[in-house]
Design a protein around this nucleic acid. Structure first.
Lengths: 213, 213
DNA sequence: GGGGGGTTACGTACACCGTACGTCGCTTCG
DNA sequence: CGAAGCGACGTACGGTGTACGTAACCCCCC
C-alpha cells in the first residue's frame, strides 16, 4: 500500500477528524501520528509545534465555510446570508468550533469574511466607523451563539439530569416557571431571531447616511 | 508562621491568582500545591479532581460580580445595569474569563443572573418565550464581547506587529482602508453600543404585550 | 559515476502532567 | 487507653510536548 508521504495538510485533516470523532481533549501528537501510521516526531517535519497545528485546524475549518454573495441583492439580504454562513461551522465541525472561535487568525482565511462584511456594510451606506462597530457587534453575537450551539456555553437544555429538575422554585421562581422553555433550544430559530433583530436594529440606526444598495 | 490548613476555598483562590498572574496554561495541580506550600496530593482531600477545581474557579469568579438592581427603575435601565455588570468579569479576572464562559454552571452562582434577568424581562411585559429568547440573545452578545475584550477572539487590535501592517491592499481593500479603525478597539464603547442597540431593538419588538414597568 | 547536501522518518530521552494508592501522624471520641 | 477517622504526603504509573541525534533517501553538481 502506497502510504502517501505525510504533509501539513494531511496532519491537519487527521487532527480535525480526530477532534470531531473524540473531542478536542483526545488530540495529542502521538495520537495523530498513530492515526496516520507514522512516528510521533515525523509530524514535526511539517508542523512547528502543536499550537501551530491547532491554528492550522482553525484556519482550515474557517476556510471551508461557503459564502454565497449576490452583489445585486439588498444589503440586508447580503448581511443575512453572511451571518448564516458562519453557522456552517457549528454544523460541519461542532467539536472544532471552540478552536475556530478562540484563535486569532491573521491569515487570509480569517480576513476574508471580514473584508466581505465590511464591503457589504460600506455599500449599504455605513461609514467606516459604523461599519466596524456593526461588524464587531455581529461577530460577538455569532461567537456567542455558536458556542451555545456546540454546548460550551449553557443552553440550559437537557443535561443528563432528570426531566424538569430540582431547581428550587422559591429561590428561582422564574427559572423554574420557565424551565421547559429554558430546557429546549431551537438553535436555528434562536439564531434567526438574533440576526433579524440585529439587522432591523442597524437598518434603523440614525448614523447611517442615506444612499442604500 | 501559622499556615492555615488548606481548604477548597484556599485552593480555588490560589488557582485564580495563578491564572491571573501567569495564564490558564500555567495551572497545574503541582503548581497550585507548591504555591500554597503543600504537597500535590493534599489538594485531593478538598477537590475531587482538576476539572472540578476549574469549575470552582468559574463559579467563584462569576459569583463575585456585583449586581445593583433597582426594582423601581425603568426596565430598560435595569437591563442596562445587568448587562454592564458582566463586564466586571473581563475587568476583574481577564484571564479567567474564558473559563467562566466555557463551563456549564448548574449551581446557584450560574442561575442567579438568569433568574434576575428573566424577572426583569417578565416585569417589562415580555411573555415567557420572548423573555427566554431575549435573554439568550443578550448572553450570546455578552459572551462574544467578553471574549473579544480579553483577547481570545480577535479585535484586530495591535498585535505585536508593526503599525499599520502588511495586509494586501488589493486583496483586502476595505480591511486595509479601515485598518486604523480595526486596530483600535474601545471595549467600553463597543459594549455600550451593543447593549443600547439590543435594548432599543427589543423595546420596539412587536410581540411584547403592553403594560410596562 | 561519485560525492554531498537537503529532506524526511524515526527512536530515545527529558521534564512535566493528572491522579490512584498506601502510609503516617494527629485529633477526637468512646 | 484504644479505635477510628481525617488530612498531609511520597511514590508510582501512564500520559503529554518536544529537543536531539541518526539513518535512509533523493537530487544536483562536479
Amino acid at each position: 500500500m502506497a502510504t502517501e508521504p505525510l504533509s501539513r495538510a494531511r496532519i491537519i485533516a487527521a487532527a480535525i477528524d480526530l477532534i470531531e470523532r473524540e473531542g478536542a481533549d483526545a488530540v495529542s501528537m502521538r495520537r495523530i501520528a498513530a492515526e496516520l501510521g507514522f512516528g510521533v516526531m515525523s509530524l514535526y517535519n511539517h508542523v512547528p509545534n502543536k499550537d501551530a497545528l491547532l491554528n492550522g485546524v482553525a484556519e482550515t475549518v474557517l476556510s471551508e465555510i461557503e459564502f454565497t454573495d449576490d452583489p445585486d441583492a439588498h444589503w440586508t439580504d447580503r448581511v443575512r446570508m453572511q451571518a448564516r454562513a458562519f453557522r456552517q461551522i457549528a454544523h460541519g465541525h461542532p467539536r472544532s468550533t471552540m478552536l475556530v472561535v478562540s484563535r486569532q487568525l491573521h491569515s487570509t482565511a480569517g480576513l476574508l469574511p471580514v473584508e466581505r462584511a465590511l464591503a457589504t456594510l460600506r455599500s449599504a451606506g455605513f461609514d467606516g466607523a459604523h461599519a466596524v462597530r456593526v461588524l464587531r457587534m455581529f461577530i460577538a453575537f455569532i461567537v456567542g451563539s455558536l458556542l451555545r450551539e456546540v454546548g460550551v456555553t449553557p443552553t440550559f437544555a437537557p443535561d443528563h439530569r432528570q426531566t424538569v429538575e430540582e431547581v428550587d422554585a422559591t429561590l428561582f421562581p422564574e427559572v423554574s416557571a420557565l424551565s421547559s422553555l429554558l430546557h429546549s433550544c431551537d438553535h436555528e430559530a434562536e439564531y434567526e431571531f438574533g440576526v433579524e433583530l440585529l439587522i432591523q436594529a442597524i437598518a434603523v440606526h440614525p448614523q447611517r447616511r442615506e444612499g442604500t444598495r
